[in-house]
Computed example of a mutant assay.
Amino acid sequence: MDSLLSVCDIKEDVSYIIDLAIKIKAGEIEDMPLEGKTLAMIFQKSSTRTRVSFDVGMYQLGGRAIFLSSNDLQMGRGEPISDTAKVLSRFVDGIMIRAIEHEDVVELAKYSNVPVISGLTNLEHPCQALADMLTIKEHFGSFKGKKICFVGDGNNVCNSLLLIAPLLGMDMSVACPEGYEPDENILKISKNFAKDNNTEITISSDINIALDNVDIVYTDVWVSMGDEAEKAKRLKDLKPYQVNKELMDIANDDAIFMHCLPAVRGQEVSADVIDGPQSVIYDEAENRLHAQKAILYHYLK
Rank of each mutant, 00 (worst) to 15 (best):
A40Y: 00
D83N: 15
K245Q: 14
D19K: 09
E138K: 14
L34M: 06
L289G: 01
L108M: 15
D72T: 08
G266K: 01
S70E: 13
G141D: 09
E178Q: 14
N155P: 03
S46G: 13
I29Q: 07
D272A: 06
K110V: 07
S69A: 12
G36A: 07
K301F: 00
M75R: 11
V214M: 06
F43Q: 05
D83K: 12
K245M: 07
N192P: 00
L162T: 12
E184G: 02
S270A: 07
G179D: 08
Y16V: 08
Y59D: 03
A99Q: 13
K11T: 12
E30V: 10
G78I: 12
G36T: 00
G276R: 00
A251F: 04
A165Q: 07
I136K: 12
C149R: 07
V243H: 07
A232M: 08
T50W: 12
M75T: 08
N113V: 00
K233A: 13
E184I: 05
T84H: 01
F257H: 05
N213W: 03
H259C: 05
D206A: 12
A291E: 02
L187F: 06
M41W: 04
S160N: 11
A210W: 03
L34F: 02
P182H: 11
D104R: 14
Y282F: 15
E138C: 09
D31P: 02
A65S: 15
G57N: 01
M248G: 07
L39R: 01
